[in-house]
Design a protein around this nucleic acid. Sequence first.
DNA 1: ATGCTTGTTCGGGTTCAATTCGGGAAAAAT
DNA 2: ATTTTTCCCGAATTGAACCCGAACAAGCAT
Lengths: 203, 203
Amino acid sequence: MARVPRQKRAKATVNAIIEAGFIAMAEHGPAATTTRQIADIAGVGVGSLYEYFDNKEQIFQVMAERFVADTIGLIQPLIPALVRKPIKEAVRDLLQHFRNFLQQDDERYLKCARHAMTLGFEEHMEPLQKALSELVTQYLMHHPETLRIRNIPTMSYILINGGIFSVVRHLCDPAPPISFDELVDGLATMVGHYTEQEMVLTQ
Amino acid sequence: MARVPRQKRAKATVNAIIEAGFIAMAEHGPAATTTRQIADIAGVGVGSLYEYFDNKEQIFQVMAERFVADTIGLIQPLIPALVRKPIKEAVRDLLQHFRNFLQQDDERYLKCARHAMTLGFEEHMEPLQKALSELVTQYLMHHPETLRIRNIPTMSYILINGGIFSVVRHLCDPAPPISFDELVDGLATMVGHYTEQEMVLTQ
DNA sequence: ATGCTTGTTCGGGTTCAATTCGGGAAAAAT
DNA sequence: ATTTTTCCCGAATTGAACCCGAACAAGCAT
């Protein structure tokens, strides 16, 4: 970022640019969003973009950071309630909240998540992974019997990555082969069966 | 594609362009690959690109199609051997082959898979999904006891999408939190436990 | 072989978007 | 009130995608 916004006005400008980025991206996709579109939507001149961002790419970067931060902001407050529920219900709840989050503001985030790779989502995903790992840890502590499960890091990795991707892909698919509820139910059952089988094998 | 190549020479040109596309994409990423780079690597003039492709985007599209076709070409011949193995071993084998496939030619495909979304990978993924569903079907037929499993379409969907994404993401990650073998083992165990638990619940 | 038609290649020229730059307006500091 | 800092802008620059017409090669009939 070439310059740090110091005045209130400037902070509002930066914010408007990021918001505009999401809107333009949702509407045109990442390749077809131009700096002029972003500037017009934000209601600023093109040159202003470059006061606070080195280039268009960096706008996308910051958008990705914002998105991840917002996602974490969604998850954190849910943790206390989730850890008290049975595992299948917890998975279902989490995913339903995630869907609502993606679909708010006319699916703005969902449409952008679709192009997550382009946005360099991966590089910023680590905090999200951490937040979800934290959720898993908390859950395990509230359910001592589940501490017998082996390979928890590996399974978290698979479920977090696979789960996020499956959900995003499903929501983007105009004609998905299964319903969203089936997907959520499937993920919940997958987790449930795995833990139960581990309980059996390690008793 | 503006024109269909009729002569052998022209077909070679088209092929060279697609190959060059993979090389350039792997080296520079999708945003930074220029038509000149592709043309230079392919050893043709820039104008030649536009004889067979409407625009740069379409080159990427065709690359995605090629990639999916090659992946299917990898999987199809493996099916007969895979269906004879125990489920965990089958998963492991499949994923190892997939890894080798992605990493051949200096990880060309892997580097491109990373940007799969940009390439419009999703739109072309359906045949791949079909091929993998075919594998699942064949497997089920060779192991009649597994026909008792419920929700097979849903579980296929989750495992195929989640599995592919987890593997690609892992291979792209310069510092993955778990090893590839752990990931493969985790996926195999996940499938194994799920089927066993279903066996128990439906007997 | 020779001319004719069609298919193919090429690279300079045009267009359009990203980025730069320098000056003028607004806010803050003195 | 004046100086200094911060902020905003849009015309000019730059470079890449894309178009186009000339030059070249292949097939094919005579």
